[in-house]
Amino acid sequence: MTADLIPPAFRDPVHDSQSAFRRLLKALSRPGTPVSLTGPAQPPAPMGGPLAAIALTLADADCPIWLDPALSTEPVRRYLHFHTNAPQIADPKAAAIALIGDAGRLPGLNEFHPGEAAYPDRSTTLILQLPALTGGPSVRLSGPGIETTASLAPRGLPGWFWQAWHENAARYPLGVDIFLTDDRIVIGLPRSTKVEAP
């Protein structure tokens, strides 16, 4: 394979994106539950399979995306442009979806759009790719979609993250929604989910 070739997207765009969407829906409606998500074969590094699957499933010309510096490489930009045609914009506040390859350097949740009082749906959805979704500091989650409580211990989030998430949930119904991914799993974290330390 020459360096110029853009790797393929889903093998079966209709049914693979349907399956991916149902998994995202399950993840978001049951926050904290790990949901397996298979991505397209060999997306350009550092994109993992689930991150690529989410971009291919949700992004299109009507859905501006923002890429963090780790993902701002020519192969990733060309891949996303070719397969989704989503506008790639420089202002994170104007993005419908923010793809973040290096969550440790996340600038802060306030960099993104929380929606408007009359239109809380006009917010940014963040996709955070992490080294692992277990083995980090454990937190307890509660809220819609969670029967009692759920625990979550993702590794690689910045130290300020859970405090910022607490603030994000406090301004409900405004706020950002997050999907956490590693190389095969996605976990949903809608703004309605509250966090308490263990």
Partner: peptide, 27 residues
């Protein structure tokens, strides 16, 4: 017909709306 009638771009738009609806219950 397209699978399940709607074209893929419309489904994507509706899917994004469904995810927002789940994130903000009742809105």
């Amino acid at each position: 017909y397209s699978f399940a009638y709607l074209d893929e771009m419309t489904k994507r738009m509706i899917r994004r709306a469904i995810l927002k609806a789940v994130a903000v219950p009742g809105y």
